[in-house]
Write a protein that binds this DNA or RNA. Structure first.
Lengths: 255, 255
DNA sequence: GAGTGGTCTAGACCACGAA
DNA sequence: TCGTGGTCTAGACCACTCG
């Protein structure tokens, strides 16, 4: 069956045409947010294509953050608009790491703390929980200048984490994954520009009143529970954050 | 053929096991950077799996930036290490846009300029080229405070771009794609913290000596040629940059 | 012309969720 | 128990690259 409802109106692979069709239908509200799309088999029948084609189309919708898929349930619409034009991060990395493969984190303090008001709000957890709190300075191997000040909060269920003393060469989330068989699934990142305090400037060995990048990362597991939060402060000039995005689908609404 | 060389050593889907195997072989240097991996059919035979399984495994390697694939050529190793632990940006968006669907760019100046030394270095192009240069202020619809100062350079072949006057509600790269049938494939982004100059502070209506986020984006087409470069300066406090990453493969080297 | 990856079909079995 | 999406097979045709 080479003829179907898609070929007449578009060009490109059939799964892309199908993805575009579904994209437009979601956008138009034919399938409301929270609803289930037709099943794979239903779409196979509706459009006269194989399951492969339907699944490839669904993959594009998932990548755009329009739907989520659950085995045994179906494909649920979670948004009417694609969250971003570009997906597929190729590299989200500091330019420092591009040239120096290794950095080390010198742990200054590491102890259990009861979460106070400010921190509770920042972490989005209840007051009174006891988290593992780690402070340190990260630097390049063969360089005396520090790259950043780091502050890490580890969730109570993982606070017995071992080995957080001295210079660390592996990220803390990796140690968590190994020791507790927990799997980081998602990372939320926020970046701001901040003025360095006098204390920070001194520790980072930069002149007073310079500014810096404030980068907060929230590491979430499969159930979207916060596992770790890390806050880094990088002095300006000595550091810039680089990343690349690739566009890997081609839904052109116009034209 | 349910038995193959993969099942005995790992768990999970076969394509993930195969991906891990190839991942380790690339890391170990069995396939050097620049070399071609075995073809899909060869791997089908070697591991006793179908082409589907091999292709799914290859997809994971592509996502990690380890290989590139070319029809008619093969799968070439481009790196021995995965460029980042996480791919699949879910959203790379400012928190402002999350709540306000639209921002507008008020164009202040728009004219052709001959590239001088500094700019040439920044753009990575030769001196003397004539680019379209646009300056503007971006702000939210129902808010008087500007979000950022923006400076855009458009490549000579697109400098006849129309409609860059007055308030713009669509991104410039989108206008380029429409008017010139050019397709943006990749975006490289760099973020720094900077001190705002007095002029900037005034235009952004913030106190002097505050700091800001400096965000530069390079838009590249399919041939990796620079199409547009945009530089934005966002005042601190009024703006933070947020994004999320999802991990969608599970190559655990240890264990 | 031979071989590559990209697309596509028509089947199949499985684990899991919901009724 | 039944239907879902996840995995997998064994074919097929195509456009493209390269010798």
């Amino acid at each position: 069956m080479t003829d179907n409802n898609l070929g007449a109106f578009s060009s490109g692979p059939r799964y892309a045409q199908l993805a575009k069709t579904l994209f437009n239908e979601i956008k138009s509200g034919k399938y409301a947010v929270g609803e289930l799309l037709p099943t794979e088999f239903e779409l196979c029948a509706q459009f006269g294509v194989s399951r492969f084609t339907v699944r490839e189309a669904f993959k594009q919708l998932v990548q755009q953050g329009l739907i989520v898929r659950q085995p045994g349930v179906g494909s649920r619409v979670i948004s009417r608009e694609s969250s971003t034009q570009y997906t597929q991060t190729m590299s989200g990395i500091t330019d420092l790491r591009q040239y120096a493969s290794e950095t080390t984190l010198d742990v200054l303090t590491s102890n259990l703390v009861e979460i106070n008001d400010d921190v509770a709000r920042m972490l989005g957890v209840s007051l009174g929980e006891t988290w593992l709190h780690i402070e340190g300075i990260r630097s390049l191997e063969k360089q005396t200048f520090p790259i950043c000040l780091t502050e890490v909060y580890v969730a109570p269920r993982f606070r017995s984490l071992l080995g957080v003393t001295g210079p660390l060469t592996r990220p803390i989330y990796q140690m968590l994954e190994e020791q507790f068989d927990c799997r980081i699934k998602t990372v939320h990142q926020e970046i701001q520009a901040v003025n360095l305090t006098a204390a920070m400037s001194k520790k980072l060995q930069v002149p007073a009143r310079t500014c810096g990048l404030w980068i907060a990362r929230r590491y979430m597991d499969e159930r979207d529970d916060l596992v770790e939060m890390a806050i880094s402060i990088h002095p300006s000039g000595r550091f810039s954050y680089r990343e690349s995005f690739r566009r890997d689908w081609q839904i052109k609404t116009g034209k």
